[in-house]
Amino acid sequence: MAREPLKSLTESMFYVLLALWRQERCGTEIAAYVRQLTEGRVALGPGTLYAILGKFQDEGLIRESWVQGRMRVYRITDAGREMFRRELEKMCRCVDNGRRETGEEEST
């Protein structure tokens, strides 16, 4: 059965792409980066992390840049950057709309 292409990112997916935005990282580095960036709010378990990495590789959003022993290092592709930008834009619009409607924009 053909897999449905990824239309949007979950929060975990978003942070995995973000973790690879500036530099290549291996799985554990991605998990540590996300934990640190979100101050522990978003924890990536191995089941989730490696499912996301596998899915992203299938979609061409990331690729393995090099393998050393058992360590695999991933880098984001142009398609991955494009996907991330689209998701970020969508989230920004959501935030803008929310702030405008609730009047929180002026107060902050």
């Binding site: 979950t10 929060e11 975990s12 997916m13 998990a31 934990r35 978003v42 924890a43 990536l44 378990g45 191995p46 089941g47 989730t48 499912a51 996301i52």
Partner: peptide, 14 residues
């Protein structure tokens, strides 16, 4: 250690 699966949407897909 974190939970094995931390993304409910992905878990649901599986």
């Amino acid at each position: 250690a974190p939970e094995l699966d931390t993304d409910q949407a992905l878990r649901r897909e599986e």
